[in-house]
Amino acid sequence: MSYRRSRARREWIARALTFACALVSIATTAGIVVVLVTESYHFFAKVGFGRFFGETTWSPLTEPRHYGIWPLAAGTAMIAIGAGLIAIPTGLLAAVFLSEYASERVRNAVKPVLELLAGIPTIVYGFFAVAYVTPILQRVIPSLPIYNALSGAIVVGIMIFPMVASLTEDSLRAVPKVQRESGIALGATKNEVIRKVVLTSARSGIISAFILAISRAVGETMAVTLAAGNRPQLTWNPANEIQTMSAYIVMVAKGDVPHGSLEYYTVFAVGLALFAITLVMNLLAARLVRRRSYGV
């Protein structure tokens, strides 16, 4: 084979191999969707959408069996909302500090701390909740059970705080300097410029950061499994023990249910719901970011 032919051939092989690698991510998505839909199909064929969305009790493993998703959905929502109440204000203010007030030196010192906080495994946050947060809360609310939604929401809030801060900071820093200077030139104080010019201008990026962080809280598993407990109940009282959608999946998987049983398929139905919720939130966040434009 001539030298030129072998070079062309190597070129072709490299292109084909790297293309095959790139296809793996497409196959992953296809795999996730196919698995969730086909396995949930077995569940919905037996139970039906009516009971899944209509009943208000979730007890698929014990008699009397009920298949209403709402207790798990409410548990997940309570964790996500509670976490958002903690992480959104602190994260937003921290982002304002980093982008508007901090000097380069302070920023370079603070950023690694936030990265470190963001890199802590979720199981550690779960331990943090059970070992330290709950005992502290029990001093204030003596009737609080060991496993409760409040403690879970607090640690998940701490967990997503760095994410809110760094994503928000990115969108604040993308606001052109000219806009800030115009505000100052019109006689505004710094915080007036921040509130009325910078935050307004970066609005869609900031909301997108919030949505991404909440979506992360919705899908979060180990911290809430440890902290919030394993009792699905339809409640809005954060002092109760609850179960989130992700915690249910973990609980059933640990229990070794037989492959092909209805209990086995419930996991995929819950997984499909979880996947759909986070997907919608992530797509919404991506759409908001794409729309942002900083015309001067």
Partner: peptide, 24 residues
């Protein structure tokens, strides 16, 4: 599509990958 797909995959909860593994 590949690029958009990668961005979306990054936001899929880890437990969903677990379910993919269980079935596969």
């Amino acid at each position: 599509i590949i690029q958009l797909n990668i961005t979306n995959l990054a936001g899929v909860p880890s437990i969903v990958y677990g379910l993919l593994g269980v079935a596969a």
